[in-house]
Design a protein around this nucleic acid. Structure first.
Length: 472
RNA sequence: UCCCCUGUAGCUCAGCUGGUAGAGCGGGUGGCUGUUAACCACUAGGUCGGCAGUUCAAGUCUGUCCGGGGGAGCCA
């Protein structure tokens, strides 16, 4: 009849500290499970903070040692231990919590020896990265994890509510045609002695019968499904083998790529603006406590800056106009501005922070600095590209209307010296029932960074993969 | 890949112009308290990232390698 009948209702699976903290304590008995954050023990009374990751706030456990024989258990408990505690929820006379659990029974599920590396004191994120298997037990990483989850869910919700179909584009790609950066090769060949023909590696002997790589983008495949199911999106892992060691790059990251058929650049921009505002609002609505935490301890003023993006209509400006604005600003940029050159991050930040003081969508870039698949404007010089710039970060979304004219696309492929054989199926989409279509890409970890204010991208993904980094 | 900074106890750091090391937190022991970054006392932890060099003498200077951070480029 209803889906609710399949919800899990057994006590141990759905009792969360987050919910317990909202209750009024009237002596009701309950069982709680979690990890001990800290213990304050004395002769007659012992206090413990219990967390289960559902909330930033801990549940305070109090044990009246004169009433209950729990000395042995309390002795064994130290920071990090996992426990199951039965007790009565009562109002707390203390200052920092409204309720507390009067423990009457303690079961230690897992001891935590004194070399447990996490203290309740603040640790540096650099140190936490070295113990990535334990770092989700910290306030900040747990909060990041919850916000990351909310953003994922918000993204899916937005697209699903708007009729988009979720497409699982391949992780392994043999098309060799994506052209968006250095790729990781995937092979089962013996690297010490690969089969060779005329001195070169013979990939016909490889697993796929040709050279294969990890995908650098799902866009081209998404276009295939968009030209059949109208509006689609991908949301999955992407790989770049660039030797870039920065706080904004990963070798493995997640990307959101919607693709809309029968949609021009204008529709694309409207959708992108609503999308961004939706997921920001969704996160503020569902992660209030965590966002307050980030606002207070990680990046002061972040709530205000996100709200500003939600409230402000995005400014539209062409690349040509943007360059004029920047030239007129008379500022001494490290990289000088001139028409035909790509906007540097300093330029993007200046546009969105100083000139327009809000989100800006820059459109119609010179074709030379954009990808081959973007739709050529009638001036034959610029393409229907759009980048969304936001204060504090710069570019957050990049997209375009795709070239849907077979001849023009073939022309671009030729101009750039690409091999049209590699793009045969991509060209076919323009040969059979071609339609105007558009889409954009959003780097998911960059979004999580932007929303949480976390400085290093390696701290917003559970298991970062980067140059010389794949321990966990 | 380039530029800058950095690597001292489990963690966060101090150690001036070269003379073989210290604090806070954490750990251990004891005490005390409706506590909450608890408090008090005592205590145990370090061949100062690796290697080579200068020097009577190097944590401190030089070179080099490795790790970390920031910025740039590439990009998402």
């Amino acid at each position: 009849m209803t889906l609710e009948q399949f919800y899990v209702t057994s006590n141990s699976m759905n009792t969360r500290i987050k919910d317990i903290l909202k209750l009024t304590g009237n002596g009701q008995e309950m069982t709680v499970e979690g990890w001990i954050r800290t213990k304050r023990d004395s002769k007659s009374v012992c206090f413990m903070e219990l967390t289960d990751g559902s909330s930033l706030k801990n549940l305070q456990i109090i044990v009246d040692k004169e009433k209950y024989e729990l000395d042995k258990e309390i002795e064994r408990i130290s920071t990090g231990a996992s426990v199951r505690i039965i007790g009565h929820l009562v109002p707390s006379p203390g200052k920092n919590q409204s309720v507390e659990l009067q423990g009457s029974s303690i079961e230690i599920l897992g001891d935590s020896p004194s070399d447990y590396p996490l203290q309740k004191k603040r640790h540096s994120f650099e140190f936490l990265r070295e113990i990535a298997h334990l770092r989700p037990r910290t306030n900040t990483i747990a909060a990041v994890t919850r916000v990351r989850n909310a953003l994922s869910y918000g993204i899916h919700t937005f697209f699903q509510e708007n009729g988009f179909i979720y497409i699982h584009t391949p992780i392994i790609s043999a098309s060799d045609a994506e052209g968006a950066g250095e790729m990781f090769q995937v092979t089962t060949l013996d690297l010490d002695a690969p089969p060779k023909t005329d001195g070169k590696v013979d990939y016909t002997k490889d697993f796929f019968g040709k050279k294969a790589n990890l995908t650098v983008s799902g866009q081209l495949e998404a276009e295939i499904y968009a030209t059949a199911l109208k509006n689609v999106y991908t949301f999955g892992p992407t790989f770049r083998a660039e030797n870039s060691n920065t706080s904004r790059h990963l070798a493995e990251f997640w990307m959101v790529e919607p693709e809309l058929a029968f949609c021009s650049l204008d529709g694309n921009m409207e959708m992108a603006e609503k999308f961004l505002k939706y997921i920001l609002q969704y996160t503020l609505d569902t992660c209030g406590e965590d966002m307050e935490f980030f606002n207070k301890f990680i990046h002061k003023g972040i709530l205000e800056s996100l709200q500003h993006v939600i409230d402000t209509p995005f400014t539209h400006v062409s690349y040509t106009e943007a360059v004029k604005h920047l030239e007129k600003a008379g500022k001494n940029f490290e990289y000088p501005v001139s028409w035909g050159k790509d906007l540097q991050s300093e330029h993007e930040k200046y546009l969105t922070e100083e000139i327009f003081n809000g989100p800006v969508i820059v459109t119609d870039y010179p074709k030379e600095i954009k990808a081959f698949y973007m739709k050529l404007n009638s001036d034959n010089k610029t393409v229907r590209a759009m980048d969304i710039l936001v204060p504090r970060l710069g570019e957050i979304i990049g997209g375009s209307e795709r070239e849907n004219d077979y001849g023009k696309l073939l022309n671009r492929i030729d101009e750039l010296g690409l091999d049209k054989e590699d793009y045969w199926w991509y060209l076919d989409l323009r040969k059979y029932g071609s339609v105007p279509h558009s889409g954009f890409g959003l780097g998911f970890e960059r979004l999580v960074q932007y929303v949480t204010g976390m400085q290093n991208i390696r701290d917003v993904i559970p298991f970062p993969r980067a140059v010389k980094t794949a321990e966990f």
